[in-house]
């Protein structure tokens, strides 16, 4: 079970959190302007890196706040956590952050 440093509450066990998948994928301001391929890219394509990954977490059973984290997906070590809308301070900003927009987590359970 991961130990996650919520920027607002401090270190808490993973069971208090929900992972929201890849971070820094802004929703397009005008989705209707996107081609089907671009929209599909936004919705579904993910970097899924082996290494440093910027991802979203929600402290759902705590303060309820969303925040971002850099985590190494090979070691599961967190490099840092930081508020939504800001950039990580660590130099190793993942390359996928510069990619065009992709989406929130897909939800498949009705």
């Amino acid at each position: 079970m991961l130990l996650i440093d919520c920027p607002y509450c401090g270190k808490r066990p993973e069971t208090e959190f929900r992972c929201g998948g890849q971070a820094h994928i802004a929703r397009p301001t005008d989705p209707s302007a996107l081609s089907d391929a671009d929209w599909s890219e936004h919705l579904f394509v993910r970097a899924n890196p082996r290494g440093v990954h910027a991802e979203r977490w929600n402290h759902i059973h705590g303060c309820g706040r969303w925040f971002n984290a850099l985590r190494d997906t090979v070691s599961d070590r967190f490099i840092e956590t930081y508020p939504v809308g800001s950039e990580p301070t660590t130099g190793s900003h993942p390359s996928q952050g510069t990619e065009p927009t992709r989406s929130t987590q897909t939800e498949t359970r009705a």
Binding site: M1, T73, V74
Partner: peptide
């Protein structure tokens, strides 16, 4: 587990 990982290890919970 709820997060992506290549560690071949998950949580006890």
């Amino acid at each position: 587990d709820q997060y992506t990982s290549y560690s071949q290890q998950g949580g006890l919970h």
